[in-house]
């Protein structure tokens, strides 16, 4: 890398240099200012949103005593845990199959695996809605499965898009790893499973955890697909809040929003930290 060269030639001179700096600062302000304003006003002791009327925690109190919100948080957590677990197992297996093996049909599988990432939410939502309405009677043949309350439908559809995100993150990690360690293990008569358990898995663990946290974030944040497949009374928090948001700005909505945003950001930051802390040396090739 010729980073020594970069400094002198890449940096524009004179006024445009300051323009570039000012612009970058402005874009970052654009990213974060609305979020900060939302947080500040969630502590506002007033029903009107625009005027600051003193600090209060009342809206957060309301939030935690609200029955509907509590039950929808519970739905969100259940869906998120189950869908993440399944997506992590399937996504990691897919990542290994694509990155460490060559097989017939691999290219097609690779292409299909990207689709859930780039497909617009609404299209995915419509697909799930149509699918479950056409196949509900088939699923009811499977013992122990109850599509009526929507929980299973939510889990199934969240897994469908989360597999792809997990596998992208795990593959990025695998691509940076040397396969020679795994080869050495199998030369030393380790079985496939032993090699995976003792050599591959510990090495890709940061990727797996990073992918899992990403899946948690996406599952908790999803609105469109969830609102199409959830049943009345079994809506996850994001769908319930979406209903509230559409009606307008209220202090209660602000406090719910801040809590959701904080949770979402915490998972994102954790995911970025984990995949960065372990991958930074190998990424800077």
């Amino acid at each position: 890398m010729s980073k020594g060269v970069a400094k002198s030639t890449a940096e524009p001179m004179g006024a445009s240099r300051w323009l570039l700096r000012g612009h970058s600062a402005a874009v970052f302000a654009f990213f974060y200012a609305p979020i900060i304003v939302l947080c500040v006003f969630s502590f506002n002791d007033s029903n009107a949103v625009g005027n600051w009327n003193g600090f209060t925690l009342d809206w957060y109190g309301d939030l935690f005593s609200n029955k509907n919100i509590k039950s929808s948080i519970w739905v969100s957590v259940k869906v998120c845990v189950f869908s993440t677990l399944i997506a992590v197992v399937l996504g990691t297996a897919a990542a290994l199959a694509l990155e460490r093996f060559r097989w017939w049909g691999q290219k097609a599988f690779d292409a299909v695996l990207y689709l859930p990432i780039i497909i617009p939410d609404v299209t995915m939502a419509v697909m799930m809605l149509v699918f479950f309405s056409e196949t509900a009677s088939w699923f009811n043949w499977i013992p122990g499965l109850n599509l009526q309350d929507g929980l299973e439908k939510l889990v199934f559809s969240h897994v469908a898009f989360n597999i792809s995100f997990v596998s992208v993150v795990v593959r990025a990690r695998l691509a940076n790893l040397d396969a020679s360690m795994e080869e050495a293990a199998s030369d030393l008569y380790a079985s496939r499973w032993q090699t995976f358990r003792r050599v591959t898995l510990p090495q890709i663990m940061p990727g797996v955890i990073g992918g899992a946290l990403m899946a948690v974030t996406i599952s908790l944040d999803d609105v469109v697909v969830s609102s199409f497949v959830s049943a009345v009374g079994g809506t996850p928090l994001s769908v319930y809040v979406f209903g509230m948001l559409r009606k307008g700005v209220t202090p209660l909505v602000n406090s719910v929003s801040v809590v959701m945003l904080a949770a979402s950001m915490a998972f994102v930051v954790a995911s970025l930290l984990i995949s960065r802390a372990s991958g930074s040396e190998s990424e800077e090739r």
Binding site: I35, V249, S257, V268
Partner: peptide, 15 residues
Amino acid sequence: PFWSNFLIRTYAWRV
């Protein structure tokens, strides 16, 4: 912002 809650980020503008 790329990964955090899209819905709430949009709502922030409504405020």
